[in-house]
Lab assay of single mutants.
Amino acid sequence: IGSLMYASIFGNVSAIIQRLYSGTARYHTQMLRVREFIRFHQIPNPLRQRLEEYFQHAWSYTNGIDMNAVLKGFPECLQADICLHLNRSLLQHCKPFRGATKGCLRALAMKFKTTHAPPGDTLVHAGDLLTALYFISRGSIEILRGDVVVAILGKNDIFGEPLNLYARPGKSNGDVRALTYCDLHKIHRDDLLEVLDMYPEFSDHFWSSLEITFNLRDTNMIPGSPGSTELEGGFSRQRKRKLSFRRRTDKDTEQPGEVSALGPGRAGAGPSSRGRPGGPWGESPSSGPSSPESSEDEGPGRSSSPLRLVPFSSPRPPGEPPGGEPLMEDCEKSSDTCNPLSGAFSGVSNIFSFWGDSRGRQYQELPRCPAPTPSLLNIPLSSPGRRPRGDVESRLDALQRQLNRLETRLSADMATVLQLLQRQMTLVPPAYSAVTTPGPGPTSTSPLLPVSPLPTLTLDSLSQVSQFMACEELPPGAPELPQEGPTRRLSLPGQLGALTSQPLHRHGSDPG
C-alpha cells in the first residue's frame, strides 16, 4: 500500500511539474524568437521594450494561443456562430445594431475584428487614413492633437468618421493612444458598406441611429477645401490634362476667341504652333527640309505637354522668318557652300510665315494684346468667377478644330508651292551661260556676264508674291485673308516669265 501511494503521488507530481515546464519551455522559446528578432533588426531601446511588454501581456492574456488560427480551423457556418458569440456584447448593447435580422448580425459579426491594445500603444496616428470604424468594449483611450489631450473615450464609445457622408476615406486629425488595456472591435469601411448593401432595409436605420462619439476626420483635408492638395495627390493619381488660365478682364471677355491653345513656353509662336517648341509643326519652317525628324516628334510632343491658354504674339512682318533660324542665316552668309535649293526654301518659309499670320487673323479676328503681368498667370479653374468647365471645354474643342483646319490648309498650300517650284525647275534647270562666239564683223562684242542661278530668282519672285499679296490685293481696312490656291498659281508664272525669257546656255562643266 505504501509503495502504491508513493507511486501515485510521485507520478502525479511529476506530471504536474512536467506540464509546468512544458508551458515555461514554450514561453521561453517564443521569447527567444522575439529577442532574436530584436537583435537581428537592431531595434532601439524604447521600441524594444514595448515589443517585450506586449509579448508578455499577450502570452498571459491568451496563454500563447493564436485565436485567429484556431477560429480559421472551423467551417464557415461554425465561424459565424463563434463570431456572433464573441461580439454578442457589442451587437446587443450598441444602439445602431438593434433591430437587425439574424442574418445581418451574422454577416456583421464575420466582418468585425477584435484588437487588444496595451497602455501607451498608439492605435491611430495623425494623418493616417481612416479605413475603419472603432467600437470600444473595454478600457479607455485618449485622443491628442500635438501634445494636447482633446478627448478621453471609454466603454461603448465610437470613434472614426461617418462613412455615409464621404465617398473616400479621410485623414485623422489626431493621435489615438490607449490609456489602459483596451479591447476594441473594428470593422473596415469596405466590409461595412458591403453588408449594408446586402441589407438595404437595415442601412437607413443604421446610419440614422449611429452616433460617433469623436469624429477623427480632418475637415481641412476634404477635397475642394484650401488644404486638400495632399489628399488630392493621394487619391487622384490618374489626373486628366491640367489647364491653367490667364485672368480675363471685362474688356477681354467681350471679345470671342481671344486665346489660343499652345504648349508651355510657346507664347511667341504662331497660331498653328503645336507639339515641339520653336515654330509651326514643332520646328522652324525654314529647317523643315533639312530635319525630317521633326514630323516624327510632333505626335509625342503634342500628347505629353499640358495645355496652356495664352494670348497671341505680336504680328510678324511678311518677309521675316518666324524666328530662331540660325540654319538659314548661316546659309545666307556662306552662300557659296550651301545647297542652291536652300534659297528657294527660304522664300517658301517667308510665304508660310505670311500665310500663317494672315490665317491666324482670319480665324481669330481680334487685335493683338500685350501679355498680362506675371502675377495674373496660372489662375486655377476652381477659383470664384471662372467660367463653367463645359464652356471652357467647348472653347478648347473649337480652337482645336480651327487649328486642324489651319494645319490642313497650310499643308495644301505648301504642296502647291512645291509643285510650282518643281515645275519651274523642270522647265528651266539651273545653269550658267557659256561665252558666246564673236560675230564675223570687226565690231565684236565682249563675252556675256554669267546669269544668276535660278534659286536666287525664285527667292526674289516669291518675296514679290508675298509683298504683292500682303499690300496690293487686300483693300484698305479689310481683314488680311489668305489668297486662294488658283490665284497664287496664276501669279507665280507671271512673275517668273520675264526672268526666264532670256536664252540660257548650259555650261560645259555643268553635270545637269
Rank of each mutant, 00 (worst) to 15 (best):
R189D: 02
R189A: 08
I143K: 01
G347E: 08
I222L: 11
Q467C: 12
I141F: 01
E258A: 08
C369D: 12
V451Y: 13
S140F: 09
G263Q: 14
T253D: 07
P372C: 08
E230D: 07
S358E: 14
A267M: 12
S382W: 05
P438T: 10
P493S: 05
S284P: 10
K186P: 03
P450I: 05
D191G: 02
G127E: 03
P380Y: 01
T213W: 01
D330Y: 08
G441I: 05
Q464C: 12
R387C: 13
N156A: 04
G227A: 12
S203Q: 15
T131C: 08
H505P: 09
S287N: 04
F468V: 13
P340M: 10
P438L: 08
R266E: 13
G323P: 06
S353H: 09
P318A: 15
A151H: 01
G174F: 09
M328D: 14
L262K: 12
T253F: 13
G174Q: 04
D460E: 12
L129H: 12
P315K: 04
D413I: 15
T229Y: 11
G497M: 10
P486D: 10
T445I: 13
T219A: 12
G170D: 01
L481W: 04
P326H: 04
E142K: 06
A434V: 08
L410F: 15
R361I: 12
C182A: 06
T180E: 06
T445E: 10
S313N: 11
Q502H: 05
C338W: 12
G508V: 09
S172N: 01
T249S: 12
V259C: 14
S313M: 13
P453L: 08
P226V: 09
P289S: 07
S461T: 08
S461E: 14
I152Q: 12
A470N: 12
S444Q: 11
L410Q: 01
F245V: 10
R247N: 10
S172C: 06
L366H: 08
S236W: 07
F245E: 14
G263Y: 10
E232K: 10
G497H: 07
G356W: 04
C338D: 10
G288Q: 08
L420C: 06
S225G: 09
R138S: 12
S383N: 15
S433Y: 04
R239S: 12
G234K: 08
G154A: 08
P455C: 09
S304M: 06
S461F: 04
G360R: 09
L459K: 13
P317K: 11
T445R: 08
T253S: 13
Q402V: 13
A412M: 09
S461P: 07
D460L: 05
N339Q: 12
P384N: 05
S394C: 04
F312P: 15
S394K: 01
G268D: 12
L262V: 09
S335I: 07
Q502D: 14
I351W: 06
R386E: 04
V150G: 02
Q424M: 09
L418I: 04
K240I: 09
C369S: 07
A498M: 09
L421Q: 01
P475S: 12
G174Y: 11
P370Y: 06
D204S: 11
D175R: 07
P289G: 13
S313D: 09
D197S: 10
S287F: 15
S172W: 01
G282C: 01
Q364W: 06
R266P: 12
I152T: 11
K171M: 08
G270E: 12
E232V: 11
L427C: 05
Q364L: 05
L165R: 14
N404P: 03
H507P: 10
S433N: 14
N404S: 13
F202K: 01
V451A: 06
I212M: 07
P476H: 12
D252W: 13
M469A: 08
D330A: 11
D183K: 13
D397R: 06
L449A: 09
L243A: 11
F159Y: 01
P318F: 15
S313E: 09
T436K: 13
P476S: 11
L216M: 04
R405G: 08
F245T: 14
N378Y: 04
V435C: 10
P455V: 08
E296I: 10
R248T: 11
L418F: 07
V348Y: 09
S375Q: 14
S334D: 10
G224W: 12
P340N: 12
D197W: 08
A167G: 12
P340E: 11
L492Y: 04
S272N: 07
L418P: 04
S446D: 07
G439Y: 06
T253C: 15
G288F: 05
N164T: 09
T219F: 11
R405M: 03
E258T: 09
P429V: 06
A498Y: 11
P503N: 09
P438M: 11
D197T: 13
L376Y: 14
P256F: 07
T443L: 06
P306M: 06
G263K: 14
S236I: 13
P169E: 05
Q502P: 13
E480L: 15
P440Y: 11
L163A: 10
R217P: 03
L341T: 15
P200R: 05
L129Q: 12
E298V: 11
P447M: 07
S375L: 09
D204F: 07
Q495D: 14
G263N: 09
I158N: 06
N173E: 05
G265V: 09
R217E: 02
E296W: 09
A167C: 12
T229A: 09
S208V: 06
